[in-house]
């Protein structure tokens, strides 16, 4: 597995698209920190970028990578090795390489300009989203033999979580505004990894506003370590469940 991991890592890390990704993040975040009057404003802008771009890149890149590597994966599977090992090697190689690209592009400027809790949380969520959306991308990929269908599915998944989902939540909030929605909102948040990551950073970035909630559940959620543990737990589920499902499918799949 280590060998598979290191070959995928080397292959991906030298990929031109990933280098662009890293460079884009680097220029953008350095620019925001350097020219922006205020680092808290830069962190907010970077939050928007991380929540939008990281999932998009991960899901597209991982899906393309999977389909392009399929023939080689076939050769690997004909070797005396269980399928699960090849798959985890592929997954880890890919997500670690993309994490490194993120850490170079976003992490270095953050460490250099602003090591506030909010930006460190932001960085942590970038890493988390990388692992989660690679996992979701693999799930989309193993579920469909057709490359264009797979990439299409991946893009729809991204669009759903990045944009549509919050619109639906807003609709729910609007139509049921007469009901106590405290628990509903928390449950809805767990259904979207991007929202979970966003709320996780909010806990550090906008505590002042969030403490304006009247509900006691929210008070304890935003005021204590509970909110952090809650978000982390569900984020981990978002990583583990698609990964586990994809391994299940992959080990029973015809190539």
């Amino acid at each position: 597995m280590l060998k598979v991991f290191s070959y995928v890592f080397q292959e991906v890390f030298r990929n031109r698209m990933l280098v662009f990704y890293s460079l884009f993040l680097f220029l953008l975040s350095s620019g925001l920190f350097y020219f922006g009057a205020d680092s808290s404003k830069a962190v907010v802008s970077l939050l928007h970028v991380v929540l939008l771009v990281v999932p998009l890149l991960c899901i597209v890149f991982a899906t393309i990578h999977y389909y392009n590597s399929l023939e080689f994966i076939e050769l690997l599977l004909a070797q005396p090795v269980p399928r699960r090992r090849i798959f985890t090697g592929e997954y880890l190689g890919l997500s670690v390489a993309m994490t490194l690209a993120l850490l170079t592009g976003l992490g270095l400027p953050v460490l250099f300009w602003d090591t506030s809790a909010a930006s460190l949380f932001l960085l942590a969520m970038g890493v988390m989203l990388t692992f989660i959306f690679t996992s979701i991308a693999f799930f989309a990929s193993v579920s469909s033999t057709d490359k264009s269908k797979g990439i299409g599915t991946a893009l729809i998944i991204w669009f759903y979580y990045a944009v549509i989902f919050d619109g639906l939540v807003l609709l729910v909030l609007h139509y049921f505004s007469d009901y106590p929605l405290e628990k509903v909102v928390l449950v809805l948040t767990t259904l979207n990894p991007i929202d979970l990551a966003r709320v996780f950073v909010l806990l550090k970035l906008d505590t002042s506003a969030l403490m304006g909630y009247t509900g006691s559940l929210f008070q304890s959620f935003f005021g204590t370590i509970w909110g952090i543990l809650f978000s982390l737990f569900f984020l981990l589920l978002w990583l583990v469940i698609p990964l586990w499902l994809s391994i299940r499918i992959f080990t029973r799949k015809d190539l």
């Binding site: 939050l47 549509i164 950073v201």
Partner: peptide, 20 residues
């Protein structure tokens, strides 16, 4: 304005959809 009417919408702070 939305959060004035529905404080729970505060959970959507910094969401891309809200920006739109």
């Amino acid at each position: 304005k939305i959060t004035e009417e529905n404080p729970y919408a505060l959970m959507m702070l910094h969401s891309f959809f809200i920006d739109l």
